[in-house]
């Protein structure tokens, strides 16, 4: 009969720990010079490499976004999705499939990351865009 307290505790515990919150809303950062190593790769590391890694990339657009591979697999490489589109064209975010996929444009297949409920934050999207517009440097 003592075990009847387990669900009871759960119920009581949950009543005390209910909150109703939405967020976070990040303040928009002013982005000046973007570094591939310090700003862009960490975004890939946190959001993309579960799918885009050497072991399973063949199922995910043949794209590996791990640290030592990502840059060469992106710049001026034809997209797996459509041979006529480049993954990244330096100085031209609009025509780069990378930017179109992370900004949820729905233009070229699935948006990225492939988890519809958490898109990249506005700041991370901006970082990728500015990085491409600044010449997509390996800096």
């Amino acid at each position: 009969m003592k075990k009847i307290y387990i669900p009871l505790i759960v119920v009581v515990f949950s009543l005390f720990s209910c909150t109703k919150q939405q967020g976070p809303i990040e303040p928009l950062l002013v982005i000046s010079t973007v570094s591939y190593v310090n700003d862009i790769q960490p975004i890939f590391d946190e959001n993309c490499i579960d799918c885009h890694n050497i072991n399973v990339e063949q199922h995910f657009g043949d794209l590996n976004l791990e640290a030592d591979k990502s840059y060469i697999e992106l710049i001026n490489i034809n997209a797996d999705y459509d041979e006529n589109i480049k993954r990244v064209i330096p100085n031209n975010a609009i025509n780069s499939i990378l930017w179109q996929k992370v900004n949820n444009s729905n233009l070229y297949g699935d948006n990225m990351p492939l988890t519809p409920n958490d898109p990249l934050s506005q700041n991370n999207q901006n970082l990728i865009k500015v990085w491409i517009e600044e010449g997509a440097l390996d800096n």
Binding site: T19, Q22, G23, P24, I25, P27
Partner: peptide, 19 residues
Amino acid sequence: VIDGSTFVDGSNFSYSFAH
């Protein structure tokens, strides 16, 4: 989350166990 982030109601954002 970056510094200065807020909840929708405008208060300062920080994660807690309840979340």
